[in-house]
Amino acid sequence: MAAKVKPIPDGFHTITPYLIVDGAAKIIDFMQKAFDAKLDHEATKRPDGSIMHATLKIGDSMLMISDTSEQARATTTMLYLYVPDVDATYQKALKAGGTSVMEPADQFYGDRSGGVKDPAGNQWFLGKHIEDVAPGELKKRTADMFKHHGKAA
């Protein structure tokens, strides 16, 4: 009788981001330097040396990555990463080769956040929850933001 396995492996959540990039090794290096990402196991490589699959852990979340292939083309995405110190992580990400998308600032919705773009073009928004905002107050702040800025964040 086969052993029963869990439908979601240990360490994973229901949703797991999977990045398809040109230059996965460079993005893995960026994630390790910027976000203290840990390789879950040795990357599986294709015969040409490109990365077929790698799994990394950032904080309590898993992320998968591979180099582009005929079956899966590179695409960019945006990820929101909660961190204990947005400003320090933002600076660390810039030093790791990221480019600024938005400098850290306190936001109307209750997070301090800022963003960087990795060398493959993925945007990483960094957040730290600093305030619980009640639904009515959030609605008011959202209206005020549109009134003063005239466009979505």
Rank of each mutant, 00 (worst) to 15 (best):
M1H: 08
M1V: 04
M1Q: 07
A2P: 07
A2R: 07
V5H: 12
P7C: 03
P7I: 02
I8N: 03
D10V: 00
T14W: 00
T14C: 00
I15F: 05
I15T: 06
T16A: 00
P17A: 00
P17M: 00
Y18F: 03
L19P: 07
D22C: 01
D22A: 02
G23A: 03
A25F: 10
A25D: 11
K26W: 01
K26E: 13
K26I: 06
I27T: 08
I28C: 02
D29F: 02
D29K: 08
F30S: 04
F30I: 09
Q32C: 00
A34R: 08
A34E: 15
A34K: 07
D36E: 07
L39T: 00
D40G: 01
D40A: 01
H41W: 10
K45N: 06
R46W: 12
R46C: 09
G49L: 13
G49H: 15
G49A: 15
I51Q: 11
I51R: 14
H53W: 11
A54E: 15
T55W: 08
L56P: 02
I58E: 08
G59D: 14
D60V: 03
S61Y: 14
M62G: 07
M64R: 10
I65D: 00
I65Y: 09
S66F: 14
D67M: 11
S69K: 03
S69V: 01
Q71N: 15
R73Q: 14
T75E: 11
M78V: 08
M78A: 04
L79E: 05
L81D: 05
Y82K: 07
V83S: 05
P84W: 06
D85A: 05
V86W: 08
D87Y: 15
A88M: 10
K92N: 09
K92W: 10
L94S: 13
K95G: 04
A96R: 09
G97H: 02
T99V: 04
S100C: 09
V101W: 04
M102T: 13
M102H: 13
M102V: 06
E103W: 11
E103N: 11
A105F: 12
A105H: 15
A105S: 13
D106R: 05
G110C: 09
D111A: 07
G114M: 03
G114R: 07
G114V: 01
K117H: 07
K117G: 11
G121T: 02
N122D: 02
Q123T: 11
W124P: 01
W124K: 01
F125P: 03
L126V: 04
G127A: 09
G127N: 06
G127L: 08
D132V: 06
V133A: 04
V133Q: 06
A134Q: 12
P135H: 04
G136C: 12
G136Y: 04
E137K: 13
L138F: 13
K139H: 15
R141G: 05
T142K: 12
M145P: 13
F146S: 00
K147Y: 11
H148W: 13
G150Y: 11
G150P: 15
A153M: 14
